[in-house]
Write a protein that binds this DNA or RNA. Structure first.
Lengths: 348, 348
DNA sequence: TGAATGTGCGTAATCGATTACATTTTGTAT
DNA sequence: ATACAAAATGTAATCGATTACGCACATTCA
């Protein structure tokens, strides 16, 4: 009682396998009568294609691989959902891989995607430098788009946001709220997002006359735990900055947790900003001022780039940066009384 | 400059493809000398297997499909991570699918997994009743394990937690904290988890002398939005219960958001409990008393069951329920002064 | 020395589809 | 009715691996 194959259908319908294939896939010429017969027989036999065999012969699997550093970071979850939605529109399937922020695992995932002959790869590389080897090992025959993160020294398309502009929005808002000193908390600077955001932070804090000490750049990991650790460190420190600028919402969550436990008020004692605008940013107390990434747009563009026919010879690789959006919430606004959930939005 | 195949390697090494296959896979007999030569040539050519061809011939892909209702529900994200970890230990790869809580999409995913000839399927069915057809359509040749959710009328293994016991823990704790009235908020009762939790809620609220009105069962969806809606409804209601028992943390988050906006104190005015113990439950203010699901254990057991050799003939299907654990936090404990982050744990 | 046993390796079938090419059937124009 | 084009279908090669089978050769033991 095995799964029936195209041969079984061909026998039962008294035609050749070629005709069955044509009838089922809609390619090639088949008479209406035969088509109906084949369809009927196929459904009677409960025929269900074998995508492995199809992929082997036809050279494309209809599957797109996506590698992200951490599926439990809600920013990536949202990105994945957007990508999945876009892929559905073009009839492709998503194969999601978590590299757990580990370059070696990332390389293994990449290799396995190549062995699976996926039709394309979307990747948020986990390391701005060490990921370069794995990325450059991918044959040019398979389209690759880097998403969010970017690795220098690679020749692929990239889609992300304008991190410097984002920091300009954050710091100009902070300055407006009266900040004159700031600290920056993010992942290790081996991460391209952190690099760009840090550069923007330094540039625009200067522009707005906000002081930053060398010790005020605290780089660790994109995790709640790192935020909590930094929070504890800041609490132990004699002088508190006016604003804590984070490279990711989940880091800011850790800081909120530490400060709430110590009953230090945000934004009363210090203002706080995040990055990504994940769902919880609006739920947490205080609700978090943050930079929203347009995941829908990022995903749509990445899928579009990936679906483009590979150009011959040398290719100019697209670098598409979308405009970020500042979402102002409680963590940077003194409670002026009234509705605590009101949100102002500000587009660059 | 195409990817080199096993034939290329065979030519270059002056042996047959059979020998190359044996040398690379380590199966069959090959002399040490030949093996070394093949390995050398293969690496020189940058040979990289074709898992599609391998899967077609050998009948197993090394891939396990997993279908969850929503990848953005952090409970499922955690479950997925645990499963991925377990699969890695047995050398299998995870193919993750999101059914978006949609039975039709779930059925499509299931079908596509079958066409891909995955080695096994792990599924949290999105609908306690309507998912039955899709599940029963899976040929018995492919091992299926239901995780967390369960569909009546299906013949597969199941791994989850003891929901009734969980509700006993919640209500006994609530009673201890002085609750005499309660409401229950969860997804539609077409969901098996909700059904079991509701049954446990009704049974144990009675046991502990906690009153429940018919209107006090509020079933909608597993989402923050639903929680927020219920929160608004409760706020508009004349009389507030002593405790709000939620079937999922994310619902409780919505309620917290609504109550925080209205400046109604939790647990001052009303106590609140969640379910799942997602990461954010300990970060939110007030931190959330909830039931922890042992995702590691669930995942390990599910993978174990799925890897078992299919038994001949009629099979007794395993139903494994793990013990839940009550995590007591601020949302059910009056601030007795002192450390707000202290967490008591209580195992059944 | 000859039989028995084991090792190393090659030949070719096979998995289930797609598809180039050949062949038959049908339709149309003369 | 004949010829020729177009449409429908069949034959068989093919994708890239795995693997059953068999042959040649080496080793061992009586």
């Amino acid at each position: 009682m095995h799964q029936s194959t195209i041969t079984d259908v061909a026998h039962a319908a008294n035609v050749s396998t070629a005709t069955v294939s044509r009838a089922l896939s809609g390619t090639g010429r088949v008479s209406e009568k035969t088509r109906r017969k084949v369809l009927k027989v196929a459904s009677e036999l409960g025929y269900m294609g074998n995508s492995i065999a199809r992929a082997l012969r036809s050279k494309h699997s209809g599957i797109v691989g996506m590698i992200v550093p951490s599926i439990s970071n809600p920013f990536f979850t949202a990105l994945v959902e957007s990508v999945e939605h876009e892929l559905q529109l073009v009839g492709k399937t998503l194969f999601l891989c978590d590299s757990q922020g580990d370059v070696a695992l990332e390389a293994r995932r990449l290799r396995s995607l190549q062995e699976s002959h996926v039709d394309g790869i979307l990747i948020s590389p986990c390391h701005g430098i060490e990921s370069v080897t794995a990325l450059n090992n991918i044959p040019k025959s398979i389209p690759v788009v880097q998403l969010d993160q970017f690795v220098v020294g690679t020749a692929t398309d990239w889609v992300g946001i304008d991190d410097e502009k984002a920091m300009e929005l954050v710091l100009s808002h902070a300055a407006q709220q009266g900040a004159t000193s700031a600290v920056f908390v993010s992942s290790a600077s081996t991460n391209s997002s952190t690099q760009a955001r840090l550069a923007g932070f330094l540039k625009h804090s200067e522009t707005h006359g906000i002081s930053v000490e060398p010790d005020d750049i605290m780089l660790g990991r994109f995790s709640v735990e790192w935020g909590e650790k930094v929070g504890a460190r800041l609490l132990a420190h004699p002088k508190m900055p006016d604003v804590i600028v984070c490279g990711a919402d989940i880091i800011a969550f850790g800081i909120i947790r530490a400060f709430t436990a110590a009953e230090v008020s945000i934004p009363g004692r210090v203002m706080l900003t995040g990055f990504d605008d994940v769902a919880f940013a609006s739920i947490i107390t205080p609700s978090l001022t943050t930079v929203r990434q347009p995941t829908r747009l990022l995903a749509a563009e990445a899928v579009r780039l990936m679906s483009q026919p590979p150009t011959e010879g040398v290719k100019a690789h697209a670098k598409v940066a979308f405009a970020p959006q500042l979402i102002i919430r409680e963590s940077t606004t003194r409670p002026a009384g009234g509705d605590a959930t009101r949100t102002q939005e500000f587009t660059s």
